[in-house]
């Protein structure tokens, strides 16, 4: 079973994403901040991480940098409200596979995750 980690500090967004991907048959882990995310990555080796950027303690950029350094194969999707051109550029430069902005289409997100996982 494919393992997905979802990182966001908004409980309701976490809830919706968790529900969505569980239904698609993924094993879903959730984290409320960057620190928690890194712990889960070390413990559970998720294949794909959906990352918010603005979070307490450790932000999304930091988590992405950490992943690309220590877990090169893990796919990264930024899912954030930051939609400015510079923000997208910065995310892609860090080596993210996808950069999606909030609000998002659930169908679209699920499809993109599927494509990335195969």
């Amino acid at each position: 079973m494919n393992k997905i980690l979802i990182v966001d500090d908004e409980p309701n967004i976490l809830l919706s994403l968790e529900f969505l991907f569980k239904k698609e048959g993924y094993k879903v882990f959730i984290a409320r901040d960057g620190e928690e995310a890194m712990d889960i990555i070390e413990e559970n080796d998720p294949e794909l991480v959906i990352l918010d950027i603005m979070m307490p303690k450790v932000d999304g950029y930091e988590v992405c940098r950490y992943l690309k350094k220590n877990h090169k194969d893990v796919k990264v999707i930024f899912l954030t409200a930051k939609s400015k051109h510079q923000d997208i550029q910065k995310g892609m430069d860090l080596g993210a596979d996808l950069y999606l902005t909030k609000p998002f289409s659930t169908k679209d997100l699920v499809n993109k995750v599927k494509t990335l996982m195969n």
Binding site: E10, N12, I13, S16, L17, F19, L20, K23, A81, K82, K84, K102, P103, F104, S105, T106, K107
Partner: peptide
């Protein structure tokens, strides 16, 4: 303005996600 719109995106994201979940399933 940029902060306000940013702040608004959070509830809208949830609303849209759950609306889509509710509609499809």
């Amino acid at each position: 303005i940029s902060t306000v719109t940013h702040e608004m995106k959070t509830p809208i994201t949830s609303i849209r996600a759950f609306s889509e979940i509710l509609m499809d399933e």
